[in-house]
Design a protein around this nucleic acid. Structure first.
Length: 424
RNA sequence: CGGGGUAUAGCGCAGUCUGGUAGCGCACUCGCUUUGGGAGCGAGUGGUCGUAAGUUCGAAUCUUACUACCCCGACCA
């Protein structure tokens, strides 16, 4: 793609509305723009990252045997009445009426809709387990939207729902999703912890949260230095624990000592058991020929929140430092004097095509701007690799390869193998 | 909803106390010169000062009401 043709309105200064680093950088890099409080437009650059995160999630879900569906954002009151949640939910459930005066809401989650689908279309235990997921826009009328896309009212979530005949099978589905979530965050390249959590309003037996560790995290978690043990301090507070005195104590599992960290909750998995399937009469015929109420699990990942969390964890004074897996582009070819110097333009275009043909996601900065402006933008946007074609090339056929973290090497432009090797 | 704050050009800000008809930097447009760390010179464009009402000869500035947005708390992917 040509930089000059893409809408990438970068800013030198962060708008006053932004408080935390990820929000500032997303605005400055031209990834998002606010439409209303907690409601954002994703511009081309932001959308590219969002799509890459979606891709990582989708791949891992499919590999785990889940199947993709797409449910409506608009849901009828009748379904929510079945679980009594129309009454139970507060104002975060945005309700409205259609022209026939029928009540609807914007879906903050989809237990009712998916359970309705399964109960109407699955008859036998032989068809189970089923795990259906979607990647979709959710709306929660949050009391206080905050920090840009980190806690917005409208956001993209991957939500998966598993249906099993018995508790043991639910456990298997749960572990399966737990592993898939680990895989997703590892593949993206984020530092995270799995944390025991309060199962909260959604209800059910057990739940764990996936937290990306970052200083601006909204949650406080207690983790062990030497094991997987981690717990949300909200749970400890309920038990009357004094959080501050925990730091430095032995971990309850005997391995390592406790540390208090800040985390961003990007995923949450629940064993729901039969809460919703009881309310909604979701059952199948069991092996014994009797009606058997389904066991459910639900598994959420905040796709748009991961974008913000990744920035929160990976940035420096110059801008964003994307993990390669979700960077908007793999390479930026910075062509200095593209509009004036034919030799530069030809070489840049030629290299652009060669790299694209190799399957790299490449952008060519063909703008009429100086080196300083171009490299600053590239650093702000966080593209992992820059290839600079300028004076050195004109004089000595050399191009400069420069990573986002500042490692520089000079390469002959015809040395394609050497160039490609830099991407490994 | 409770507490705190902000609102002047696309972004960052000054002007408000002490009323006199709006300014700076960046960005943007045109021209020429530039092109390896956000280029220079020259000439320009852009604002019913958040909205409404009031006080006044006169309001960005004073008064009142409203709205939007941000921050701290309860909610959550």
């Amino acid at each position: 793609m040509l930089f000059s043709k893409l809408l990438i309105p970068t800013l030198k200064e962060a708008p006053q509305e932004a408080e935390i680093v990820s929000h500032k950088l997303m605005l400055r890099a031209g990834m998002i723009r606010k439409v209303a409080s907690g409601v954002y437009t994703w511009l081309p650059l932001g959308l590219k990252v969002l799509r890459k995160v979606e891709g990582e999630v989708r791949t891992a879900m499919n590999n785990a045997g889940a199947q993709e569906v797409l449910m409506p954002m608009v849901q009828p009151k009748e379904l929510w009445n079945e679980t009594n949640r129309w009454e139970k939910m507060g104002k975060e459930l945005l309700r409205f009426r259609d022209r026939h005066d029928r009540d609807f809401c914007l879906g903050p989650t989809h237990e009712e809709v998916i359970t309705d689908l399964i109960r109407n279309n699955v008859r036998s235990y032989k068809e189970l387990p089923i795990n259906a997921y979607q990647i979709q826009t959710k709306f929660r009328d949050e009391i206080r939207p905050r920090y840009g896309v980190m806690r917005s009212r409208e956001f993209i979530m991957k939500d998966a729902y598993s249906f099993s005949v018995n508790e043991k099978c639910l456990d298997e589905s749960y572990i399966n999703m737990r592993n898939a979530y680990k895989q997703i965050l590892q593949n993206i390249g984020l530092d995270f912890k799995i944390v025991k959590a309060d199962s909260g309003a959604i209800g059910g037996d057990a739940s764990e949260e996936f937290h990306v560790l970052a200083e601006n995290g909204e949650d406080t978690i207690a983790i062990s230095t030497n094991s997987e043990f981690a717990i949300n301090t909200e749970l400890l507070l309920e038990e009357g624990e004094d959080i501050k005195s925990l730091e430095g104590k032995d971990s309850p599992d005997g391995k390592g000592i406790m540390q208090i960290k800040k985390g961003i909750e990007v995923g949450h998995i629940f064993k729901l058991g039969q809460v919703y399937s009881n309310d909604m009469n979701a059952s199948v015929q069991s092996q014994e020929g009797r009606s058997s109420t389904l066991y459910m699990g639900c598994y959420g990942i905040g796709v748009s929140r991961i974008v913000a969390a990744a920035i929160e964890q990976n940035n420096d004074e110059k801008g964003i430092v994307w993990p390669v897996s979700i960077a908007p582009f793999d390479v930026n070819i910075i062509a200095i004097g593209f509009d004036k110097n034919e030799k530069v333009a030809n070489a840049a275009t030629d290299l652009y095509e060669k790299l694209s043909n190799q399957g790299y996601d490449v952008i060519l900065d063909d703008r009429k701007a100086g080196f300083g402006a171009k490299i600053k933008d590239s650093e702000l946007i966080g593209i992992p690799m820059n290839i600079i074609i300028g004076k050195l090339y004109v004089e000595k056929n050399e191009i400069e390869m420069r990573t986002r973290d500042g490692q520089i090497s000079l390469v002959q432009i015809d040395d394609l193998e050497v160039i490609f090797n830099h991407f490994k």
